[in-house]
Amino acid sequence: MKLNDILDKAFSEQITLEIESSIAYLQLAIALDDADLPGMASWMRIQSDEERDHAAKFINHVTARGNRPQIGNITAPSDPGPEVVTAFEAALSHEQKVSESIRALYRLAQAEGDIDSLPLLSWFIEEQIEEEATVSEILGRLHMIGDDGPGLLRLDGELGARKPDAE
């Protein structure tokens, strides 16, 4: 069943946001590389790849429904500067923005009676809960570490051990 025009547009906007998220994480990776924190930079690059995978999930849903998604304008992310906490605060803020967008898309699909989109959107809602919790935990640990260089390097090593998820 083809998506109606309202949902077609909304899904395209979500796809654009997911691609924008990928680029934002890439910018954060650059900043962390510049701060000599290769593990955290690697974590951000993996996150960037995951956001592109999320865009692909939405694209696949829209095209399977007989629609053709349109990627909109991408807003360039700002450079967070050298502060690690600022980088992860930017990541959390962006995840919260994505979460709200997915919840709004879910509510719209409900209002439009499009039950075929709800399983996909439910998966994304669960995914966003996990994403926000993960970044919040990292931020909490960064606040505990404060200016402790060895603690920061330990967390950098831990985050650098992350491997891409197999979805």
Rank of each mutant, 00 (worst) to 15 (best):
W43D: 04
I59H: 07
A109P: 09
A104P: 05
V85K: 10
N4K: 09
S22N: 13
L26N: 09
H94I: 03
A161T: 10
I115D: 08
E18K: 11
E131V: 01
D33V: 00
Y25P: 02
I145A: 02
E132D: 07
E83Q: 11
D5V: 06
I30E: 01
F88E: 01
R68M: 14
I46W: 11
D147A: 10
S136W: 03
K2Q: 15
S93C: 00
L92S: 06
P82A: 12
A91G: 01
L7V: 03
I6Y: 11
I6N: 14
F124E: 03
T86L: 07
G151W: 09
E20A: 12
K2S: 13
P38M: 07
V98D: 01
H143N: 09
T86P: 01
L17A: 15
S117A: 15
I115G: 07
Q110I: 08
P69Q: 03
L17E: 06
D116W: 10
T134I: 06
E131T: 01
L17P: 04
S78L: 12
R65K: 13
A29V: 07
L118G: 02
M144Y: 06
T63A: 02
R45P: 01
M1V: 10
F124I: 04
E127C: 02
T63D: 01
L159D: 05
D36R: 12
I59N: 03
S42Y: 09
V98P: 03
A104H: 14
E130Y: 08
T86I: 12
T63L: 05
S101Q: 12
S48A: 15
L108S: 02
I115M: 08
I125F: 07
L108Y: 09
E126V: 00
L105D: 05
K9C: 04
E50C: 03
E18I: 04
I30K: 10
I145N: 05
L152Y: 03
K163R: 13
D147E: 12
L120Q: 04
K9E: 14
S12D: 05
L139I: 14
P164H: 12
P82Q: 10
V85H: 02
V98E: 08
L142K: 06
I102A: 00
R154K: 12
I15L: 09
L32A: 06
K2V: 09
D147R: 11
H143R: 15
I19W: 01
